[in-house]
């Protein structure tokens, strides 16, 4: 139910983002989804990749501050109110969304949303109870994103 996401600390300086992506490119790690959070001084690059554990080791060896964290990937209806429905369920469980990012899904009329929440197990339980489709694994998420980009 949970997907592993890589987070990389980057200074807000030209060339630093690429320094991280170069490491992954050289080692044939494919980026499937990403988002970059920024502040005045630094950014946090969050990635879904095909081999998260290997990617972490590669980046650590190159002196990056990198963390693996658990996120959930939710398939929602790509129609008005699709996201709202999911957020309402989380709200009712007092689950706080730390951040999220969304993609068009591979299936027609579906979108994929990645959530980082404060209470992971509560979020999963409540979403399942409400028949919301959760992506089972990184592979499934990757496939979904991958195909939509094909």
């Amino acid at each position: 139910m949970v997907i592993k996401q890589l987070s990389i600390f980057l200074e807000n300086i030209p060339g630093h983002l690429r320094a991280a992506t170069s490491v992954l490119a050289e080692n044939n790690i494919n980026l499937r989804a990403l988002t970059l959070a920024d502040t005045a001084d630094f950014g946090v690059l969050r990635l879904i990749v095909d081999q998260p554990e290997i990617a972490v080791e590669l980046l650590k060896n190159k002196n990056f501050a990198v963390k693996l964290s658990e996120v959930i990937a939710v398939e929602i209806e790509d129609t008005p109110g699709g996201l709202d429905k999911v957020l309402k369920i989380l709200e009712e469980e007092y689950v706080n969304v730390e951040y999220m990012y969304a993609f068009m899904g591979s299936k027609p009329k579906k979108a994929l949303v990645i959530f980082r929440v404060d209470k992971l197990s509560e979020a999963i339980t409540s979403l399942q109870k409400n028949n919301i489709k959760l992506i089972e694994s990184e592979e499934e998420a990757i496939d979904l994103i991958y195909y939509c980009w094909d």
């Binding site: 502040t39 650590k60 964290s69």
Partner: peptide, 9 residues
């Protein structure tokens, strides 16, 4: 460092 880096901004 690994200890002080958190995913949350």
């Amino acid at each position: 460092s690994e200890k002080t880096f958190f995913d949350e901004v």
